[in-house]
Design a binder for these strands. Structure first.
Lengths: 146, 146
DNA sequence: TACAAATTTGTAATCATTACAATTTTGATT
DNA sequence: AATCAAAATTGTAATGATTACAAATTTGTA
């Protein structure tokens, strides 16, 4: 569990006024770096905040992403996922179990150079898909029996 | 307009049995490399194929992507987009007008090396977002007046 | 305390995508 | 050419994530 002050400082750093709900959501993201969906965040917090509305989770996560406090991942074509790790890294999604993992990323400068002047790039994300270690065997046997 | 034989050859190369609809859809993608959505493909073809069903467009595009004949882009959080250019390249989406453009891409090998053994990566896409040349001024003035 | 602004809530749309059953087409066989 | 099964297509009805919006609540301040 992150220190409340740390969470509040993070919110303020990105120009987000802290509220009970916003603190809880940001805190959850900072302590659960597994790229949760809106639904996961909502379900996880509604026990401790029974009055929490899913709309609030949606709007808060959108606000946090707009302010740059978290990343909004579109790697999953079903649900948007959120990530409090805003340092440069790539994402990997297992096509079998759907889990999303972090990947270290050396550099994307090659892209920036080649497009200098044509586009103003404000954000970039590298999405990789395939099979994670614990799924690659299962995925193979499903393919065989298909 | 691409040669019919070229389109059919492409389909067969990827194990997709050619049909009137499949040929038309693949042909459209090969001649419209602007990353169209399902809806755009459907609207564009329904004039020449009045009986075309949107379900067919959905299932055909999914099939083409599964077989590797086209790329399925999730860069747009509203609609899936499709791309007949399957060579290695990145994508740029303008956050103002929504247009999606190609970006040349030198290498993503750095990622592959760092994850060797941990994951089986079967596909990777680099998504960049920002403002395209014709929107960056408009986006700025909107931001000012907000 | 009072009041305006900001935030949260709950419900009702929206809309892309999928499920599925019925229809049509295709291709092989006679 | 007729038959028939498999494959493909179609149309309609769900599904389900996300958003719109108005009402209710909370917050900060005079």
């Amino acid at each position: 569990m992150k220190n409340q002050h740390e969470v509040i400082a993070k919110l303020e750093q990105f120009g987000v006024k802290p509220s009970l709900q916003r603190i809880a959501i940001m805190d959850y993201l900072m302590n659960n770096l597994v790229h949760p969906t809106v639904d996961t965040v909502f379900s996880s917090l509604s026990a401790s905040i029974p009055t929490l509305s899913k709309t609030t989770v949606y709007s808060t996560l959108k606000l946090l992403a707009q302010q740059g406090a978290v990343l909004e991942l579109n790697i999953d074509d079903k649900n948007v996922r959120y990530d409090a790790n805003i340092s440069r890294h790539a994402h990997f999604r297992c096509k079998f179990c759907g889990s999303v993992h972090d990947l270290p990323l050396a550099s994307l400068d090659a892209v920036a150079v080649e497009t200098a002047g044509k586009f103003v790039i404000t954000e970039s994300q590298l999405y990789c898909k395939g099979y994670c270690d614990s799924c690659k065997d299962k995925a193979e046997s499903v393919a065989r029996s298909a």
